[in-house]
């Protein structure tokens, strides 16, 4: 369970998260939507401790993320994150990209790590690209590799930060398919996305962020069909 309580986050004078409360249960898929600068992406980087927070607390399975005593590297193996920019490691093959963390962080042997990597890469449809370098992959393939790279750590939770925003339109579909497959398999996920129909399709709940505040959260049919908050209505009418 990811439990977010009254989380505040500022960059200098700019407060980007103004007291966020959100609980995500195991197996749940929560989508976060909102305009740019609403703080939705920042929330994800706070959840796995890449960014420190200024107030409140985030606990994952009872471990407080930002407590001094927390081993962040260990915690991060439980929470995978995939970024908008794929951040493929260009000097490593697809296989090496995926096996790096299992070997170096989890201390797996080469054979074991490669077996897991191969399984995950097959899962995202890249079984034939194992020894290819990222520069030879399309954006969609690189992003699917990044997903496999995160999955290879067997995380309990996955965070997706606008993972289709940097893709050419014709490549978005293949990545969304992969995400949908994960959702159907019961992976606990928090997704930040601009793909509204996709959000409506896969989510258990959808949250709308506006200026650092979670203005509204609810079931997809309710939030998209009958939004209560005026800002949600305004946002949705703009993106449609």
């Amino acid at each position: 369970m990811i439990d977010i309580q009254n989380v505040r986050k500022s960059f200098g004078d700019l407060e980007v998260l103004k007291g966020i409360d959100l609980t995500v249960e195991r197996g749940e898929v929560v989508t976060v939507i909102g305009g740019s600068g609403s703080g939705k992406s920042t929330l994800l980087t706070c959840i796995n401790g890449l960014e420190p927070i200024n107030g409140g607390k985030i606990t994952i399975d009872g471990t407080e993320v930002h407590a001094r005593s927390t081993d962040l590297n260990k915690l991060r193996t439980k929470v995978g994150i995939v970024f908008q920019q794929f951040n493929a490691f260009p000097h490593l093959t697809v296989m090496e990209n995926v096996t790096l963390a299992p070997r170096k962080v989890l201390g797996m042997g080469r054979a074991e790590a490669e077996a897991i990597a191969e399984k995950q890469l097959r899962h995202v449809g890249l079984a034939d690209k194992l020894s290819t370098y990222p520069s030879r992959l399309s954006g969609g393939q690189q992003q699917r590799m990044a997903i496999a790279r995160a999955l290879a750590m067997s995380p309990g939770y996955m965070l997706f930060d606008e993972v289709t925003s940097a893709l050419d339109p014709q490549l978005v579909g293949e990545v969304l398919e992969t995400l949908k497959m994960l959702a159907e398999e019961g992976m606990t996920m928090i997704l930040v996305t601009h793909e509204m129909s996709f959000a409506r399709d896969v989510s258990d709940r959808v949250a709308f962020f506006h200026k650092g505040v979670m203005a509204e959260i609810g079931a997809p049919d309710q939030l998209f069909g009958a939004p209560r908050h005026p800002e949600t209505q305004a946002f949705l009418s703009k993106v449609r």
Binding site: R76, F83, Q85, N87, F89, P90, L100, A101, K104, R149
Partner: peptide
């Protein structure tokens, strides 16, 4: 920074990130 952030997100320690991710690319 995307590279180091991605490495940190995978749980790599700063040392590992430097030798495995940053240094090879910098030399290249």
């Amino acid at each position: 920074t995307g590279q180091t952030e991605a490495a940190a997100a995978l749980g790599l320690k700063p040392r590992q990130t430097f030798f495995k991710i940053v240094l090879p690319q910098a030399v290249a």
